[in-house]
Design a protein around this nucleic acid. Structure first.
Lengths: 168, 168
DNA sequence: CTTGTTGCTATGATTTTCATAGTAATATGG
DNA sequence: CCATATTACTATGAAAATCATAGCAACAAG
């Protein structure tokens, strides 16, 4: 699957082009979003991304092949896996944050409000949207932050889960 | 073209999902890369991305519709346009830089070397890959940096241009 | 008046995606 | 036991996107 000129990746030195052969796809990014949100199971990922099972299966396989995630058995008989980010996958965090910042700033009307708010544990204050904490100015790392969903966004996710469950 | 569940964008508060309906596509990102590299003409964009004319036409149209770029006439009769980033398009820069950093770090072997090196004009030293200058620690803005292609990458681009020109 | 340049559009084969349905392996409740 | 539920997928066929290749329109240059 997914030829997407994979050979081209080895033909260019451009890191953006290289990265895009791995993550240059809507579903892939949404799957990564869910993994960062600590949703590790197939069902949750499918429900929250809205993808068909094949889409999710294909992305998970490709992400595994590309080294961004590993399968972890959480139940044998029946065999069940959880999907966890590797170091390479975790390293994608800044991209997702930059995308988030751009999306909040340019793809929403202000009155819609935020989806999440992050607190910078190092200083205890809001981290804002940028690559450095808006409160203390230090670069933010994933492990120094806690994110909290806004009530509205949490409700939206709950509704998606319910709708997904109801449809089976 | 490109249905990609555009309506879903209005249905979710998630900024990542919103952003992905706009830029969640390999070609789109490569087109943006070229615009940031100050290549404003159709031909250059096509040559350096390797896309078919339809791909490029479609992405340029969608990017215009989404407000990331504007057409600017540089020649009437025959009518010719240049494509320039809007403020919204320019604002995408941090995402591209984050993607670049990830690509350099995780999608290449170290011996392949960098594609570009940026100098932070504010301090006059190398800016590195991160969101803050590796030399002076300040957050980097696009207008405070100059990028220079490495010899190898420049050669690669020249070769692509030549190959493109030779094929018509 | 022929050749070149630039920016596309047209065409048809191939590939991907989507919606819908179904399966496999097991747990759970009665 | 036996029916229903749970979880993680696979199968199928229609619809849409993508690809390679070719061609065209509007002029400029020689």
């Amino acid at each position: 699957m997914m030829k997407m000129k994979d050979n081209m990746a080895g033909q260019t030195l451009c890191p953006v082009a290289r990265a895009e052969t791995v993550v240059g796809d809507r579903w892939t990014v949404l799957v990564l979003r869910e993994l960062f949100a600590r949703n590790h199971r197939f069902e949750e990922i499918q429900a929250q991304t809205g993808g068909t099972p094949q889409m999710i299966t294909a992305r998970l396989k490709k992400l595994e092949a590309d080294g961004l995630l590993t399968r972890r058995i959480y139940n044998k008989r029946p065999l069940r896996h959880e999907y966890h980010l590797t170091e390479k996958g975790e390293a994608f965090f800044p991209v997702l944050m930059a995308l988030r910042a751009w999306g909040e700033a340019w793809c929403k009307s202000p009155r819609e409000g935020r989806a999440m708010n992050y607190t910078h544990l190092t200083c205890g204050k809001p981290a804002g949207l940028g690559p450095v904490c808006e409160s203390c100015g230090k670069p933010v790392r994933r492990e120094d932050m806690v994110g909290e969903r806004t009530a509205k966004y949490q409700k939206e996710r709950d509704a998606r889960w319910d709708a997904f469950k109801a449809s089976r």
